[in-house]
Design a binder for these strands. Structure first.
Lengths: 220, 220
DNA sequence: GACGATTTGGACAAGAGCGTCCAAAAGTCA
DNA sequence: TGACTTTTGGACGCTCTTGTCCAAATCGTC
């Protein structure tokens, strides 16, 4: 699982080699996701990063500190991607079907199916109970900020008369569920662009059959 | 996580105390799900089962054998519950909305939200790559047998004129996604009957808005 | 080249877990 | 009661991991 940490910069202290530090964080992310917190060994991370074990202790410190750094990195990156993607929601659509499909493709590709998001979900699910403070950080970014944002977009579409719905929050949850329903969710599965496109089209089609304006039968 | 293993009987050999064996399997299931394969220690399982560590080695054997037994148990039980629930699909509905909601409640309660199913999903997701043969066994029961079964039911409903759909497989996947969209999916969260009922109603409502016959507006 | 900072690899102690062995205790059945 | 089976608890050897320490090697910069 390749994870770029371009956005992960040393927070305050700027000692040592940035590249080494980034390599350590990236390798730690991969190994933590693959083997879990307990199963991940510092030696495996060191080997994955092509770095001596001692360097990890020099640069970051404890295993817990390393894990916290990993979580901080993927949370930040995931949140940034989600915010950027949400900004592309079709506000004043000309062809709502096509534009919703395009948005769904961006959403699944950048925020649901990418390695970073899957890593975050897996860590939250498996180690969230062991490190509740990690869960707290994520709640702010995930369901705390982004879900209301997307439901607000749908509410605006409804006010503009593009769709018909009574509960924007519910519609947002169902939209997410529908565009994810047709995606292969096996472990470590590769999702092709064609599958992504088809899943988005199928999900949006059903979403608009339920919530679209009655007179305009969407031909996708 | 309480998991009853009434269906789990010793396969061939019938030596020793059944109660002890069942207690071991149940405890092992809980600990494996909680801590993962590597994180689960035989000592913790022995303590959870109120049994000496040596007894585990006498009754089952290896840690791997114990894990395989755990997976076999929850897979069997999950499959049995799914089959029993699928048999209650409304074949000739009088009130399709109400009957689909009732079916969705049964499905989520027995096959999606119960401890057994969640344990199975978690183990598959986390250890499936480490033990592919485990994944194989599950594929037969899960997507291999049950998903075609449910889509066949929807196809029959469509032929009878109760709903309008072109792709039964897709409709089945979307039905599952919709009735699960409104469920709290946090780790270890308790789902009340009221939430279950409401989630099912919301999901079926949208499903029928998309696939129901146009003239009969469902009032749920 | 020389100096300081960093990295490296190896060694180390402490602890945890797995699987085995074994003698004593408890349970089971005739 | 007596013979047989099972369970128990403790001890053991083995491996793996964590975190620390340290001297030698490497890198960057002047």
């Amino acid at each position: 699982m390749e994870i770029s940490h371009d956005l992960v910069r040393s927070p305050a202290v700027q000692k040592g080699n940035y590249n080494k530090r980034c390599a350590i964080i990236a390798a730690a992310t991969a190994v933590f996701v693959r083997d879990g917190y307990i199963g991940a060994s510092i030696d495996a991370i060191a080997e994955e990063a092509s770095v001596s074990r001692q360097t990890i202790y020099n640069q970051i410190g404890d295993k817990e500190k390393l894990f916290a750094e990993v979580v901080r990195g993927i949370t930040e990156q995931g949140s940034a991607r989600m915010a950027a993607t949400l900004a592309t929601f079709p506000d004043q659509p000309e062809d709502i079907g096509r534009e919703l499909v395009e948005f769904a493709v961006r959403l699944t590709r950048n925020c649901l199916c990418d390695d970073n998001s899957r890593a975050l979900r897996k860590l939250i699910e498996n180690e969230g109970s062991r490190y509740p403070e990690l869960f707290e950080t994520w709640k702010d970014y995930g369901p705390g900020k982004n879900w209301p944002a997307i439901s607000a977009r749908f509410a605006r579409l409804a006010r503009a008369g593009d769709i018909e719905l009574d509960d924007p929050d519910l519609a947002a949850r169902q939209f997410m569920a529908l565009i994810g329903a047709d995606l292969p969710n096996g472990p470590g599965e590769i999702v092709s662009d064609a599958q992504l496109e088809k899943a988005a089209r199928n999900g949006v089609k059903t979403f608009l059959r339920a919530y679209g304006k009655r007179e305009s039968a969407p031909a996708l």
